[in-house]
Amino acid sequence: MPPVINKEECIGCGVCAEICPCDVLHMTGEDVPQITYPEECWHCNACVLDCAVQAIKLRVPLPAMMLYLEARE
């Protein structure tokens, strides 16, 4: 479930935990933020956009997978 944090890249600044609109991430004394409530992510991308070192990506869960077809000629 989103977000996914690259622990090698993360500098532990805590910005993502500060700004998450749904209070999904928390700094709990670890070096990297904990994704405490993954099910409460609304895929807004705020953490991805605000991460200074691009250490966060979203993994969009399969139930939210986009459904598409080849466009018709």
Partner: peptide, 18 residues
């Protein structure tokens, strides 16, 4: 942007996919 990133990752191209 989450939607755009996802479409990029999945190879969904609005020019050819509906």
């Amino acid at each position: 942007t989450s939607l755009l990133n996802y479409m990029d990752d999945e190879g969904i191209d609005v020019r050819k996919h509906m």
